[in-house]
Design a protein around this nucleic acid. Structure first.
Lengths: 212, 212, 212, 212
DNA sequence: CATGAATGAGATTTCATTCAT
DNA sequence: AATGAATGAAATCTCATTCAT
């Protein structure tokens, strides 16, 4: 976190390296526990046990469970944002670009199911009177904005912000929602199988919507 | 024990009527508290306080919080199922029928936002190692089946069950998911405004997808 | 309970007869529940359920669980006292009389195991700071006195009261205590089988002790 | 985790030593409360208050009240077992050996009245549908077996197990039972006074029984 | 008299957080 | 920095008791 240690040429002293590793262990353990039994049912003790560190250690790295959750959500959203952002000037029309956007989501969720479950759970805390300061809401908004920035590269200029926001909600909602139901009603193989035609239809409809 | 009351034609004595009213008060209060602060943050005491009954009264009507949640979810799903079921032989092609299905969801969610939030939250308990016996999963599956039964009236015969399931997940997921994001990024008016074109596009492409 | 009803020739009105039956049902149910799960674990509800009467009905007949327990203990001790009391001038020497006394206990316990368990449990409440008024202790003392009165008919005159009390404690203690351990370590048949010789030896030595 | 402490020869760190002390405080307090007001009337709070520790601390050391009771009974039975076990080849005939066995019980109960009351209470939980897995029954059986092993050193070879079991039940039952009644009917001094002749008679009778 | 719905005091139990080492 | 024993506030749940019908 803080670049270079005062006393050595090494970027971090041993203590800091250890602290960094402990923080990581806690994040990993928390992600596992949160997604296995849910954020609320996850107690600090369960997390520290899973991370194989003492309970008191938790409080050296995080103020409370919420700030740990926050960190995990930030991290997951960041990853997702990177994924959906075009690294270069990708050619292609509406449909190709939209398809790619869709696929990146799907691939991300299939590759990191824990992150998907976490982000889905995190959504819950919003609009429930629990997110007083909005720290948890923020990354989700950032994600929507990233989505919109990305779409802006192929959307017609001068589109109403609300319309764009509606579009991004539709895309995000569709992918998140489809997965949430697919997890009850379908096996992983069936999800992949049934996703392609559904994607086609969805992208088609979005494309048509934009073409107007 | 008591079939018919001596003094009335009603089969229930006053005691049972009172009990029924208390149960209702608890269900109402729980729905409010669950959707305001979340199922996990809702304590029995908060619920009974809101219902204006004694703490012990709760346990005369429900075994625990989970069984109360269960009852609420069952009820909400039942309502939604009734709503999306065609009461008669509705005429119209793919598009009209699909549009109606979509609209019924949207209208239901706009009319009963609490039920929407509850159902969305309830989804959380599934696939999190918390729903050991599947009592909570069951109503969601029933909902998907209702959706499929409904679609069967206008889908081509002999469609693969998995494909149908994928479709129902897509519709359910889209509506639930869109709302969940729309609630962060948009006001209620903006939701309604941006929903129409999105719906149009979604339905169009679904229809086209089915036409193939 | 109260002999003749004012208004009829019948000894009791229907209401009182019903009340009597209800009280009896409660006593029977309580004896069963107390001996099956223990006095403390027995709730009023379990008792009234077993008696198949309403919970409120309990309070028409007994002030609380303790007074019900009290009534049951009184009844059991009364029965035992009657049993161990010689109805007439029984002939026979020390040994015969002592043997009979011992056998009456054994037979009573074998015939009414529930009463045995109840009386054994009831002992518990004594000397535990729970029996503030001594209402429960009283019947046990009465039982010891009955035992002593009975023994007085064949004990030498002028024996020290303390010595007599020691003797009665020895007899009562031996029978109660033997049963309590026999119930862990032996089957009912084995109890009966192993009891005879033990009794013989015990009675013999008591007789000899008294003969001195 | 920590085998040997760096600074001492002791294997336990201070934390564990403190934990051990707390556990001890809880056991001591529980014994006092159990024997003063009874196992059932003893609440966790009363015990922790008496032990002068926080309520939550209890659950760091015991799963519930039952497992605490269990630990206390195990400990008491262990002590009693040690007491009644001959440490060396004691000479003497039936009578001397039996007398010693009897006296060890009596002395143990007089020296540790709390343990006596606890063991007497613990008996209650057996055969009352409360000791489902037999964890509480076990130590009592172990005690009977110890008693029998001890008697085996002076009993004739080839005696039937059932007969031996009957004998051990008689001894255990007599001592436990005598005390239980003596505590109602006699003062401590009177108990000691009246015990000697009773013991004589009992031992005589057992000796005679065995001589046959 | 009988009933059982309602009640709240109190018991059990969990868990985030502190703190001495 | 790491630890885990201790803590008590708060949650869950039980049950004796009341009371309107």
């Amino acid at each position: 976190m803080n670049g270079v240690d005062k006393n050595t040429l090494w970027p971090m002293g041993r203590a800091q390296r250890r602290a960094g590793k402990t923080r990581m262990k806690l994040l990993d353990a928390a992600l596992a526990v949160f997604t296995e039994i849910g954020v609320d049912a996850a107690s600090i003790e369960k997390i520290t046990e899973r991370a194989d560190v003492g309970k008191g250690t938790f409080y050296r790295h995080f103020a409370d469970k919420r700030s740990l959750l926050q960190a995990l959500i930030e991290e997951a959203i960041e990853k997702l944002n990177v994924r959906i952002t075009d690294d270069a000037e990708t050619p292609g029309g509406f449909e190709t670009r939209l398809e790619r956007l869709f696929d990146e989501h799907v691939n991300f969720f299939l590759q990191y199911p824990r992150q998907y479950i976490l982000l889905f759970q995190g959504r819950m805390f919003i609009k429930l009177g629990r997110d007083l300061t909005g720290e948890i809401e923020a990354p989700y908004l950032r994600y929507l904005e990233t989505l919109e920035r990305q779409m802006a590269t192929f959307l017609p200029d001068g589109m109403q912000p609300t319309k764009i926001r509606g579009l991004s909600c539709a895309i995000a909602g569709f992918v998140f929602g489809f997965f949430s139901f697919a997890m009850i009603g379908l096996t992983k193989e069936e999800i992949e199988e049934s996703l392609r035609p559904v994607r086609k239809a969805f992208v088609d409809s979005m494309a048509k919507f934009l073409a107007r």
